[in-house]
Every structure is written in C-alpha cells, then in structure tokens.
Simulated scan of single mutants.
Amino acid sequence: MDQRISDILALGFPGRQTDRAMEAVALGVQCADELDDRHFDSCHLLSGLYREPDGIAHHVLDGLGIKLQQIDDAIRESEHDPIDADFSIDDDLRIVMSNAFASADQMWHSYIGTEHLMLGVVADGTHSAKLLADLGVTEAQVIREVHSILGHVGVLKVVPAVLRRLFPRRTTR
C-alpha cells in the first residue's frame, strides 16, 4: 500500500475502515496526483468518495446532484500555499476522521465506511464542508441522505441512547 494512503488511514482508526473506505482514500490520493497537489486535504477525500462508485458516499453525493467535475473544479480553483514536502496532510483530515469515528459509534457500527467518512467531510471547519456549501449542499442534507440510504431515518438519536442505557459497554482490564 502507498505510504501516503497508510498515513491518511492512520489518522483514523486503522483496521476499522472498510475496503471501500480505503479505496476512497486511495482515489483521493489519485485525485491529488492528477491535480498535481502535494497537500492532501478533505476536498481530495471528498473527490475520492465520489470516485468510489459502490460506496454509500457516492450515492449520497449523486442523490444531492453533485458531480465529480464540480468537486475537482472547485479543488483546482482553490488556493494552496506552496509546500516544500513531497506530500503533506492537512489538519482538517483529523476533524474528518474524528467525526467519521463519532458517526460510526453513534450508529453502533464497528467499522468506518464511506458513509461515515461522508459525514466527516461535512463537519464544520473542514475545507470540504466549505466546498459543499459553495455548491449548495448543507450538512443537514448530507445527514438526511446518509440516514435515508441506511434506513436510519428518525431513530438515530433515540435508539443508541436507549441501547446504551440498557446494554452499557463493559471495559476489560
């Protein structure tokens, strides 16, 4: 595996990502390469999520009317400070990965899939959230679309809280 992909995945929770999530990261790195960007941020990941045609994130973006060309054009138009490194990872990827993990945990999923990464890229403070907002897509729309596809509409906030009270997680020593 390309070291850049490993470094990005290490920001999250290694071993918990699905094959599609890992492929989306690899496709995001490919996007950065195609655009001759040496600084990987959440916008490149967003492009990778769209480029993974079997991932839930692709279907979310497609359902919201977003096309790959729009994402890649917005990345091209964004200004980046020149960097000296061969490859660097933007700090906003930490926000994405943290929110992806929180989303998976809230849904009681033991894995990080493209749907969780999609929820991470719309988090406040990420470059990808701004890109999507500029394209007319809100965080609420993305959340609704993800939950609609997963079949969690309306129960996501209540069920985990009830289940956690009934079945608290045990810690091992």
Rank of each mutant, 00 (worst) to 15 (best):
M1H: 13
D2F: 15
R4I: 10
I8S: 10
L9S: 14
L11F: 02
L11Y: 06
L11D: 04
L11E: 11
G12V: 01
F13A: 06
P14T: 02
R16Y: 01
Q17S: 09
T18P: 05
D19W: 09
A21D: 08
A21W: 01
M22Y: 02
M22W: 01
A26H: 10
A26V: 15
L27W: 02
V29H: 12
V29K: 07
Q30D: 13
Q30I: 15
F40N: 04
S42A: 12
C43V: 00
H44S: 05
L45P: 12
S47C: 07
S47L: 10
L49V: 01
L49M: 09
R51C: 04
P53K: 03
D54G: 09
A57F: 07
V60I: 15
V60F: 14
L61M: 14
L61Y: 02
D62M: 02
G63S: 14
G65A: 13
Q70F: 08
I71E: 11
D73G: 11
D73V: 10
A74N: 04
I75W: 00
I75Q: 01
I75K: 06
R76Y: 00
H80C: 06
P82N: 12
I83Y: 12
D84A: 08
I89Q: 01
D92N: 08
V96Y: 02
A100G: 05
S103V: 00
A104I: 08
Q106I: 08
H109D: 13
H109V: 02
H109K: 06
I112V: 14
G113F: 06
T114W: 03
T114H: 04
E115F: 08
E115G: 10
M118P: 06
G120T: 01
G125T: 10
T126P: 13
S128A: 11
A129R: 03
A129V: 13
L132G: 02
L132P: 08
D134S: 11
L135N: 07
L135A: 10
L135T: 07
V137L: 10
E139R: 15
Q141V: 15
I143P: 11
R144I: 12
R144Y: 10
V146Q: 09
S148V: 06
S148E: 13
I149L: 14
L150R: 03
G151A: 01
H152C: 02
H152F: 07
V155G: 12
L156W: 07
A161C: 05
A161R: 11
V162W: 12
V162Y: 11
L163V: 10
L163D: 12
R165D: 14
L166G: 03
L166V: 07
R169L: 15
R169M: 12
R169Q: 15
T172C: 13
R173L: 14
